[in-house]
Computed example of a mutant assay.
Amino acid sequence: MPWLATCAALLLCAYAQLESQRFSSALDDRTSGGHYVLTVHSVDADEPAEIRVSSCEALVSDPRVERAGILRDGRLVAVPQLGADQRLIEASTGLFPQLLEADALVGPRLPAVSGALIVDGRPLRPLRLEEQPRGVDVNSSVVLPVRAFQQVHSDCVVVLRPLVRVDQAAADLIAGLDARGALTASGPGLGAADLGALYVERGERWLGIAVGVLGGLVSALINRFRAPELAVYRLSGTSRVDAARLVAYEQLVAAGFFVATISASACLLGQRLTAPTALLWWAFAGAAAWFITSVAVSLPVVLRNPVTAVRDD
């Protein structure tokens, strides 16, 4: 039985890793697609709101927020290292903390720059940005720090942490802004299905128990073919209780191999799994299902009259 339990556990671990890869891929797609980016702006497009920049940047104190700040449309200028008509955008440090270390940020889709970046005749220390999600549209731009006199702005851009419930967070964040005018939020994540909830509520969460029940049934079937062997034990003087105890011990060992194999695999796979703890719950739930199913279904074979069992087989 241990070999059967080990094979079942390895198959379960392989599926868990495949499922984790699919989840990570879906999360990456949502993140790069701007699912967790919100733009807070006026309800009335004809009357821009006045959002205090400091209150926008203060949203980072919310544990659901990764970055927050303003993006101020700039102008097109010639940058010797990059060419003519380069778009300049001003951003607050709450949205790009890298501006605390550099004078300018170069979008990842622009050519690489070595040395100082010359903008309007001034040499600036540049830093190259990583790819930004949709809604933080600076991948082909040069980003400069927002000017000190900029106290209010019409929009506030908020980047939420992955797996945050966007709909719930939007209302709370709008309420936390100091602004004049009615505000609303827009972004692709609003109204979309919650990826974390879909993962938690997926039908596959019962797979550990299903594998345990299936393994228990296969073990009981194997015991059915061992009926003559069990009958010999009974004929040699072994009581029904002792025979049942023997079968239970064998299934307990198999369940132990099931748990041990999955636990070792969870440690080895580590960061490749979305929820290693959930895999351990699969292990214990599956082992319990294996033991209960196999023993319960095997009892009729164990408790049969040994003489009848030998004659029938």
Results as ranks from 00 to 15, higher is better:
Met1Asn: 11
Met1His: 15
Pro2Ile: 14
Pro2Gln: 15
Pro2Met: 15
Trp3Tyr: 15
Leu4Asn: 04
Leu11Met: 14
Leu12Ser: 02
Ser24Cys: 06
Ser25Thr: 14
Leu27Met: 12
Thr31His: 05
Ser32Trp: 14
Gly34Thr: 10
Tyr36Met: 08
Val37Trp: 00
Val37His: 00
Ser42Asp: 07
Asp44Ser: 05
Ala45Trp: 12
Glu47Ile: 11
Ala49Asn: 04
Ile51Gln: 02
Ser54Trp: 10
Glu57Thr: 04
Pro63Glu: 08
Val65His: 06
Glu66Asp: 13
Asp73Ile: 06
Asp73Tyr: 09
Arg75Leu: 12
Gln81Lys: 11
Asp85Asn: 14
Leu88Trp: 03
Leu88His: 04
Ala91Met: 02
Leu95Cys: 00
Phe96Leu: 06
Pro97Glu: 08
Pro97Asn: 09
Gln98Asn: 10
Leu100Arg: 15
Leu100Asn: 14
Asp103Ser: 14
Asp103Thr: 07
Arg109Cys: 09
Leu110Thr: 03
Gly115Asn: 07
Leu117Lys: 00
Asp120Lys: 09
Arg122Leu: 13
Arg125Pro: 13
Gln132Asn: 13
Pro133Trp: 11
Pro133Met: 13
Arg134His: 12
Val136Asp: 03
Val138Arg: 07
Pro145Thr: 02
Val146Ile: 09
Gln150Pro: 00
Val152Met: 03
Val157Thr: 14
Val157Pro: 01
Arg161Thr: 06
Arg161Tyr: 01
Pro162Asn: 08
Val164Thr: 15
Val166Gln: 04
Ile174His: 00
Ile174Thr: 07
Ile174Trp: 02
Ala175Lys: 10
Ala179Tyr: 04
Ala179Thr: 00
Ala182Val: 04
Ser186Thr: 12
Gly189Asn: 08
Tyr199Gln: 11
Val200Glu: 14
Gly203Glu: 14
Trp206Lys: 11
Ala210Ile: 13
Gly212Leu: 07
Gly216Ala: 04
Val218Ala: 15
Val218Gln: 07
Ala220Trp: 05
Ala220Asp: 03
Leu221Gly: 12
Arg226Phe: 07
Pro228Ser: 14
Leu230Val: 07
Leu230Asn: 00
Leu235Arg: 09
Ala244Val: 08
Arg245Gly: 15
Tyr249Glu: 11
Glu250Trp: 09
Glu250Tyr: 13
Leu252Ser: 09
Ala255Val: 03
Phe257Met: 13
Val259Cys: 06
Val259Lys: 02
Leu273Asp: 02
Pro276Lys: 04
Thr277Lys: 06
Leu280Trp: 05
Trp282Lys: 02
Ala283Cys: 06
Ala288Tyr: 02
Trp290Gly: 08
Ser294Gly: 15
Val295Asn: 05
Ala296Leu: 13
Val297Ile: 12
Ser298Pro: 02
Ser298Lys: 07
Val301Cys: 04
Val302Trp: 00
Ala309Asn: 09
Val310Gln: 09
